[in-house]
Computed example of a mutant assay.
Amino acid sequence: MTTVGLIRHGSTAWNKEGRVQGHTDNPLDAEGFQQAALIAERLSGEQWDYIYSSDLLRAQQTAEVIAKRLGIELAGIVPGIREMYAGLIEGTTQQERIERWGPDWKTLELGLETPEASEIRGSQAIEELAEKHPGCNILIVSHGVILRSILRKLIPELDGTVLLKNTSITRITKSGTSWHCDLYNCAEHLEI
Rank of each mutant, 00 (worst) to 15 (best):
N26T: 14
S118A: 15
I192F: 14
R148P: 08
L57E: 12
Q61E: 15
K132Q: 15
R19A: 00
E96W: 12
V20C: 10
K174H: 07
N137I: 09
G135E: 12
R148D: 01
E119P: 08
S178Q: 15
L112W: 07
E116R: 09
K165W: 00
T2A: 13
E131I: 00
Q35P: 09
E17M: 10
G111P: 11
G76Y: 01
Q21N: 03
H143T: 06
L110K: 12
E64I: 04
I98W: 09
A59C: 06
H133P: 09
T62E: 04
R82K: 15
I126Q: 13
R8C: 00
K174L: 15
D29K: 03
T170F: 07
D159Q: 10
V20S: 09
G71Y: 13
R121F: 08
E128V: 05
I172W: 05
T2F: 10
T167N: 04
V4R: 03
K132N: 06
R148H: 07
G45V: 04
I7K: 05
M1K: 14
G32H: 04
M84N: 10
T167P: 14
S44E: 08
P156I: 08
P115Y: 02
Q34C: 05
L129A: 03
K153D: 08
E83C: 12
G80L: 02
T62H: 10
L56Q: 11
L110D: 14
K68D: 14
P115H: 02
I89L: 08
P115A: 07
L108S: 07
L57V: 08
A67K: 01
Q124S: 06
I7C: 09
R82I: 05
L70D: 05
D29P: 07
D182E: 15
G5Q: 01
I51A: 05
M84P: 00
K174G: 12
C186Y: 10
L38D: 13
P79S: 00
G22E: 01
N137C: 14
F33I: 11
P156Y: 06
L108G: 02
A117C: 07
I126V: 15
V78L: 09
R121Y: 06
N166M: 04
E83R: 07
P79W: 02
D159K: 13
N137T: 12
P103L: 04
L154D: 08
L38T: 08
E64F: 01
I51G: 00
L190K: 08
N185R: 04
L28M: 02
G18D: 08
Q61M: 07
G18L: 06
G45M: 01
